[in-house]
């Protein structure tokens, strides 16, 4: 990638009070202030949100896709970790 490119930023938007910020996409901007303004213009033109976070993509640490086997697979075989072996008593609603 050319070094003259502006850094990449990840954009997170909270759609309404009480909900979590959710990742919606990414964009380029020279600094945090303009990243927020660009996010406002690119991602919230149709009342999508009430709060925006931007994080420079370089500051995000992610799991390696090649490690996915050892990272995530073991939990699939341990069904006893899921709370599915209880009888739900009559009268309990919304379960």
């Amino acid at each position: 990638m050319s070094t003259t490119q502006w850094p990449l930023w990840e954009v997170f938007i909270r759609s309404k009070q009480g909900l979590n910020h959710k990742h919606v996409g990414s964009l380029r901007a020279p600094d945090a202030t303009l990243a927020l303004e660009n996010a406002r213009d690119v991602y919230t033109r149709r009342s999508e949100g009430i709060s925006i976070w931007v994080v420079e993509s370089a500051n995000i640490h992610a799991t390696d896709i090649d490690d996915a086997d050892s990272f995530f697979e073991p939990s699939d075989t341990k069904i006893y970790r899921h709370p599915t072996f209880y009888e739900v008593p009559d009268g309990v609603k919304h379960m």
């Binding site: 502006w6 964009l27 380029r28 901007a29 303004e37 660009n38 213009d41 690119v42």
Partner: peptide
């Protein structure tokens, strides 16, 4: 000049 600013100007 960039996609983001293109959208900002037309907004």
């Amino acid at each position: 000049p960039i996609l983001e600013e293109d959208i900002a100007l037309t907004n």
